Simulated assay, not measured.
Amino acid sequence: MNILISGIHGFIGSNFIGALKDKHTLYGLDIVFPAKDGVVNTFSWRDIEPTSFPFQALPQFDAIIHLAGKAHDTKNQSVAQSYFDINTGLTQKIFDFFLESSAKKFIFFSSVKAAADSVVGNVLTEDVIPTPVGPYGESKIKAEEYIKEHFMFPTASIDEDQSLRLGKDKGRTAMNKQVYILRPCMIHGPGNKGNLNLLYNVVKKGIPWPLGDFDNRRSFTSIDNLCYVIEGLLNQDVPTGIYHMGDDEALSTNELIGIMCEAMGKKPHIWKMNKGLMEGCAGLGTLLHLPLNTERLRKLTENYVVSNAKIKAALGIDKMPVTAKEGLMKTIRSFEETK
């Protein structure tokens, strides 16, 4: 299978090369063009613009994986428009190319942040009405909307009025192609801790974690599980749709610290300081503009559990190949080995 991968030289793309190169022929689409083992050639974005048609100048691709995008800036220092230029604009460009190309499968990497900044209820499923907060999530949902405006997706409701459905489908493409919108939660793996970096540094320095009294649970995505899912989407006849992605087990911050300490051979230092006291300190921090404020405390202690039931059912599996703990141990140990 000839596969075109945008953003192929990033962390996720590099892992996909390792997972796919032995069974597929891989091409890149990126803003940098280093030679890389397993990649036949890396094209520029100009090569897929309409002015570069006809497509005969490019290989005949069987599948396209769209990874390229602007990552979530947790420090909020990025200009909002840049998210839309990159996350929405590049998606529109490569999806237009896909519709005109010979490729039969398109995998778009969106994010759970396109669905919700915070999870209402016990778990985040694909049925949620998207309510993104901030330019990162908003730009991702705009990209999703563009795809669904130009390609027939399964209706969310079996009770939807047929005439309304026909009206919505006007202008959409129905063909022998399959499109997958993948919404992973926080991805990590050897060489990339993702947003675990702050917590990792706290644990590494032996600084006590003062929020042990909060019992929150969060989902993570091991790069090994992600590669497994991508291979499944490429090789199996999976229906077009939106799929959330995460490991099978959600972990509390206390459990996460325990796993990090186990990987580093350290003893965990978790302080269970009174919830009310910590919330009061955070409120004071908001008034005095201190690092620990109410919003930061909420982010550190909130639940964000993502369901992977739909993607597992589509792939015909009961569980992911790697547990959340196994994936995290592998990630943390990789940093201990390279420090």
Rank of each mutant, 00 (worst) to 15 (best):
K312M: 11
G191N: 09
Q60M: 07
D161K: 06
F11W: 01
H72P: 00
R218Y: 06
F97I: 06
C261W: 04
V39W: 12
H289R: 15
G280C: 10
S78Y: 01
V306G: 04
P210L: 04
P54Q: 05
G276L: 09
M278A: 04
I270A: 10
P135M: 02
K70L: 15
S163C: 06
P208E: 09
A282T: 07
T91A: 08
L251E: 08
M152V: 14
T155A: 14
D47W: 07
Q60P: 07
Y27D: 05
L90I: 01
D62Q: 12
A115H: 01
I65S: 00
G327Y: 13
I48A: 13
V112M: 00
T331Q: 05
P132I: 01
F53Y: 15
T173Y: 06
K23H: 13
H24M: 10
L315V: 03
N197Q: 14
M186I: 15
T294M: 08
L292E: 04
E138F: 11
T331E: 10
Q77N: 02
I223C: 04
F43Q: 05
A114I: 02
E302I: 14
G69W: 04
L328S: 05
M260A: 12
P239E: 14
N201Y: 13
T42K: 13
K168W: 00
K142S: 11
L99H: 08
D30G: 06
L20R: 11
G206P: 14
K319L: 07
K339W: 05
S307M: 11
K105Q: 13
Q60Y: 06
G276I: 12
A314R: 06
I332S: 07
D22W: 04
K170G: 01
I141N: 05
K275I: 12
M273Y: 13
H150F: 01
